[in-house]
Design a protein around this nucleic acid. Sequence first.
RNA 1: GGCGUGGUGCCCAAGUGGUCUAAGGGAGUGGUCUGCAAAACCAUUAUUCACCGGUUCGAAUCCGGUCCACGCCUCCA
Length: 468
Amino acid sequence: MAFKIYNTLNRKKEEFIPINDNEVGIYTCGPTVYNFAHIGNLRSFMFEDILRRALKFHGFKIKQVMNLTDVEDKTIRDSKIAGEPLKQYTEKFKKAFFEDIDTLNIERAEVYPAATDHIKEMIKLIQILIAKGFGYQTEDGSVYFAINKFPDYGKLAKIDMKNQRIGERVKSDEYEKDSVADFALWKAWTEEDGDVYWDSPWGRGRPGWHIECSAMSMKYLGKTFDLHTGGIDNMFPHHEDEIAQSEAANGKTFVNYWMHCEYLLVDNKKMSKSLGNFYTLRDLLNKNIMPEAIRWVLISTHYRKKLNFTFKACEQATEALKGFNNMFMRLNDITNTKQSSINIEAILKGAIEEFTKCLGDDLNISGTIGAVFNLQKEVNKLLDSNSISVEDAQKIIETYKKFNKVLGVFKFKDKKIEVPEKIIRMAEERQSARKNKDFAKADELRDEIKENGWQVEDTPDGPRIIKI
RNA sequence: GGCGUGGUGCCCAAGUGGUCUAAGGGAGUGGUCUGCAAAACCAUUAUUCACCGGUUCGAAUCCGGUCCACGCCUCCA
């Protein structure tokens, strides 16, 4: 089945065709490790997770590279404030980043290159750019990219530099540049940088922000690769600058497909670290929101649409997930070994087809999720009419496990949770109370069991005890 | 000033020329089941898709205009 994606380069949905058969090279802009990731950051990483899982589901092999930006203005500034060496400071937040993506069940990329491990590659690339006339050095020892030497500049963001207000907000300390829109390839050391510097042919300094992505993508994915993703705010100038650097240096197309994830809003306002209106994953977990529910909220809005984050949405997600868990439980409880008359294979096949089709349509997540819900409804009906055999139930669960390869939100309790002896005794006591029609006592016991964190539900096959 | 996105039921959210009297989820209401609950199921909540015009046999979907919201052009997922 075809896999279509919306390519920012031409603003059109088109079929995704990798350079090498079914092997996909993806570069994703990763975190700047100067603080905990906020849920806006995580939405982007979540989009990239769904993307890689969806591509795998469609039979592609993935090599995903995600950079860790561990040297730029903010990391230097904040490590200084913390009074820690840069490396020690960023290390903490690298660790936190991996904890967060594990919590959200985000699959690991194949490579996580850190900027500070690739200074040599960056210097080499800058030398090539200077040699080809795209880079120039200023008196202070910085190197800039001359965008007027690169006629395609602006092709991704559809920006014509002639019409920009760029002159209005120029920092006074950047007067050395030939043109105010030129961006730094190498930044000369200043006092604020402290002991953060590397030696280069232009003296002590550190790389510009954009150059790391060009250098590292080239190293791990080649001069031209399939897919580059990131937040929409990275489109300009970051990605535009990457294209300029890479294509100027290599004389080749940098990337075939670009995908950009929209913002996450909180109370309909853009969320960003500089505005300070952000929630980290840890904030949400402290409010006792399940990671699965957070994941569900973050994936269930299409990546090209703004996602307005609310706590109500988290509650809705929790409820929706509960419904699936109830269904899994009922399926696991089936003991009916009789061959059923229903054609479960056909039902499951239809659901998988719908799921796959929607997923391959530029990650139409609403349709994808719709297929999962529709199957749930059908299965529940069959469960009500007692027409599912043990064998069918297994097939249904297998199908949901398939869905889960992409969605990553379901928990399949293969092992039965041990109900404590005490709870079992209370439930038994309640049963005998019920038999004696002492419902007051029965209800009392049910409440008591609930206070202990368990729930008793009466089913046609007797009571069922569930962990709340 | 230039560029861009979106406005679909109580909330979230698909659909982008006919199968749409608009998928799906959450919430509410009524019912089935139950001693009562819970779960599940059934029914119900937009003759309508911001507004006004136009194109068309036919539009939520295309075109023009208006209003509203948000964003980029500056570090930012």
